[in-house]
Design a protein around this nucleic acid. Structure first.
Length: 617
DNA sequence: CAGAAACGGGG
DNA sequence: GTGTACGTTTCTG
């Protein structure tokens, strides 16, 4: 049996002989390989898809399930918690992941069934959660090397295929060294926006954190950073060769999901070139994500930095120029998009400028990647979902998948994703926001700022704001532990046992601790631990890594205060959302009053902070 | 005025 | 594919 230590770059599953096979894409150190690393695709056929059923009559439900076609592979009775109420539930194992969407409605419609759970968790995500495996971390694999496998077409001698005999084990979450390559296209588009049917690619810029930095073009023979080839076809082929030979782990672009990759795919198709850059030899694919696409290469992480930047900083515009200026304070070389064809046609100095611009674009894109990807990598390791997915998820989704993982750890059933109807009705209810005091006109000096951001997570923890400990006014399906305990013990409603929110009088039991306050509590204490380590260490590299780690945890904690009000959130609760802001308003007003007693005059307040000035007498 | 459609980024 | 963005601005009836 072979033992391998790999960095887990990506994961998916394929179907082989009617069974689901998980594929783990990774790399391992290998001094004999050209770039010092070998590629590994590990196969695991032992993982099975399942859902949970909340039955009102377990026996009857077991009978009903026998009539399903195809019949489930296994039906077991398991102990889980539902909003902290311990109970017996049915775990139904299927023969294939696709049977879940096929059969779940039929199961849900049985009279013996109250609800189904965890039927909306993609198979590869379930695998990561249940095996306690984190993408971009180092994992240990045990299995045997096989020569070939049906879905793996790559003939790369640097690739090994491993058939797993045991589940993977996480061994280290240290920062892996990653080979990052950025790319960018320039197109000759004389009439409006580029049209891939007629406007040819004139330059392909490539930069990297290894020794490749060039522009591939049909012109520019006299420039040392230009690789001149004699056709657009050769440009595309040289691009593919460069990416493949350099063993990149990550390929980055700017708006490459929607421009560069679709464009190069269209142009390559004209010459019958296959963009088969996947680790398994598969082609570039576009994954539907809502109304837009994500360009995906199996085992070669494509990250679109435009999407990352929109989460990383808050700006009114996200052009590459603007984002670069905000981060580095430097202006980029600029060529107006509608004049690129003139620079190309005019040759001479303008052509040289265009080459400089092309190189500058791709060098800047790489610089953005090096600046921002460490945070995304940390979030990947905390949330535990693929890097590709994390960089394309809204922050609320990142927090949600973190909670899904934690729910599994707490043996709690995960609430369902809301239906379209639920989502739109939720959009009509909205919590009153934060307190706003209109600013006083004039120029003020001696200002002090009070920041409340960190107070929101504190409110959730100290007031135990969580749907599983909220005393329900109308008992519905989300009946929880508090309602149950009151009923069982015939308790009178005693206000001493609750934290009661201002304005709405929502009652949160003081015990037990809610699921979400517990998770946020752990996030905050983990962050404090890292901050302490950060202060103690003298090693600048370690300090930098710890800083990113605590920043990722801070972002996660701060996301969670607003998330109760997001219409698509699994743990959505308007009562929780409105209570947090109501307590927030109470605290901010109280603090402003206190400040005024100490001689501060408040000038302006908004939601999570206020400005005041000190007036000596 | 409300609901529908377009937009962002890219050249 | 255990699937189908998203929040905001502008247009249209």
């Amino acid at each position: 049996m072979e033992q391998r230590k790999i960095v887990l770059l990506d994961i998916d599953y394929i179907t082989h002989e009617e069974k689901a096979v998980i594929r783990l894409f990774g790399k391992e150190k290998d001094e004999n390989a050209k770039t010092g690393e070998r590629k590994i695709i590990a196969l695991d056929d032992s993982f099975e898809p399942y859902i949970y059923v909340i039955a009102n009559d377990i026996k009857e439900c077991q009978e009903d399930l026998k009539n399903l076609d195809p019949e489930p592979a296994k039906v077991e009775i398991v102990e889980k918690k539902n909003f902290q109420i311990e109970g017996k539930f049915l775990k139904i194992t299927f023969n294939h992941p696709q049977e879940v969407p096929q059969l779940r409605d039929a199961i849900n419609n049985f009279e013996s069934v109250d609800d189904i759970r965890e039927h909306d968790i993609p198979f590869y995500r379930r695998y990561l959660i249940n095996n306690d495996v984190f993408p971009m971390s180092e994992i240990e694999l045990s299995g045997e090397i096989i020569d070939s496998f049906p879905t793996i077409k790559s003939k790369d001698p640097n690739l090994e295929i491993l058939k797993l005999k045991k589940p993977p084990v996480t061994i280290d979450s240290n920062f892996p060294e990653l080979r990052i390559l950025s790319f960018d296209l320039e197109v000759r588009n004389p009439d409006g926006m580029p049209n891939s049917e007629k406007d040819e690619i004139i330059m392909i810029g490539i930069s990297s954190n290894f020794d490749v930095e060039k522009v591939i073009s049909t012109k520019g023979e006299d420039l040392d950073f230009v690789e001149t080839v004699d056709s657009e076809k050769k440009m595309i082929e040289s691009f593919i060769k460069t990416v493949r030979e350099n063993n990149a782990d990550i390929i980055v672009g700017y708006n490459s999901d929607n421009f560069d990759f679709p464009y190069i795919k269209d142009r390559a198709a004209l010459y019958n070139i296959n963009l088969d850059l996947g680790m398994d030899g598969s082609s570039l694919k576009f994954l539907r994500r809502g109304y837009t696409n994500a360009a995906s290469l199996k085992g070669l992480l494509h990250i679109d930095l435009y999407l990352v930047m929109r989460r990383y900083i808050s700006l009114d515009r996200y052009t590459l120029e603007r984002v670069y200026f905000e981060l580095f304070g430097e202006e980029k070389i600029e060529v107006p998009g509608d004049r690129i064809y003139q620079f190309w046609d005019n040759e001479g100095e303008e052509l040289d400028n265009l080459f400089d611009y092309s190189l500058d674009d791709v060098v800047s894109t790489l610089k953005l990647a090096e600046e921002t990807l460490p945070l995304s990598l940390e979030l990947t390791k905390i949330v535990g979902q693929p890097f590709f997915d994390i960089t394309r998820m809204a922050t609320g989704q990142q927090a949600e998948w973190y909670l899904v993982r934690k729910a599994n750890e707490y043996n709690e059933l995960v609430p369902n994703k809301p239906s379209g109807i639920q989502t739109s009705s939720r959009k009509n209810e909205s919590a009153v926001g934060g307190y706003v005091k209109e600013p006083e006109k004039g120029l003020h000096d001696n200002l002090v700022q009070f920041d409340f951001r960190s107070l929101y997570p504190s409110i959730i923890i100290s007031k135990n704001v969580s749907p599983d400990v909220l005393l329900k006014k109308h008992l519905g399906t989300d009946y929880n532990i508090v309602n149950l305990l009151n009923e069982e013990n015939n308790l009178e409603e005693n206000d001493d046992n609750y934290n009661i929110s201002p304005e709405h009088d929502n009652k949160f039991a003081k015990v037990p601790q809610g699921f979400i306050p517990s998770v946020i509590g752990n996030v905050i204490s983990e962050r404090l631990k890292i901050k302490k380590q950060m202060k103690e260490t003298e090693d600048p590299t370690e300090k930098r890594i710890l800083k990113v780690q605590q920043d990722a945890l801070k972002r996660l904690a701060n996301t969670m205060y607003g998330i109760y009000g997001f219409s698509r959130f699994r743990w959505y609760s308007m009562e929780c959302a409105e209570s947090i802001t109501a307590w927030g308003r109470e605290y901010i007003k109280e603090t402003m009053k206190k400040a005024e007693e100490y001689g501060f005059k408040s000038i302006y307040a908004d939601t999570d902070g206020f400005y005041a000035k000190y007036e000596s007498n």
